[in-house]
Amino acid sequence: MELKDRLRALRREHGATQEAMAELLGIQLRAYQNYEYGSSFPNYKNFLRLADYFDVSLDYLAGRSESRERR
């Protein structure tokens, strides 16, 4: 699973809207939508914010691991 797929699944799992995620990250809605479409990627700071918000490891969020557990 790729980052775009993980973001969409985690957002839905948490009951958040794309608008709410964009606001959380301090970015425009279109910028967040591009993350979920896979046409752009979050910068390091926002990547960390996303992992913290969803309480998952960076490797899980990036699609490099199936384990959500943070170490």
Rank of each mutant, 00 (worst) to 15 (best):
E19R: 13
E69Q: 12
N34K: 13
L48Y: 06
Y60A: 00
A22W: 12
E36W: 00
P42D: 05
L25F: 04
R49A: 10
Q18W: 14
D52K: 14
E66H: 11
L7R: 03
Y60V: 01
R49N: 14
A62L: 14
D5I: 04
R6V: 06
L61E: 03
R64M: 07
F41I: 12
L50T: 00
V56P: 05
L29D: 13
L24Q: 10
Y44E: 15
Y60R: 09
S57G: 13
R8W: 07
T17D: 05
A22C: 09
A51Q: 03
E23P: 02
E19M: 08
F41G: 06
K4G: 01
L29F: 15
K4M: 07
F47W: 03
E36T: 08
D55V: 01
K4T: 06
D59E: 08
Y44D: 11
D55M: 03
L58M: 11
S57A: 05
L29V: 12
N43E: 14
Q28V: 10
R64S: 01
N34D: 10
S39H: 14
R68D: 08
E23Q: 11
L24R: 12
Y60P: 11
A62R: 08
T17N: 08
V56G: 06
A62N: 03
Y35G: 00
V56N: 12
L25H: 12
R12Y: 01
F54T: 09
E66L: 05
R12Q: 15
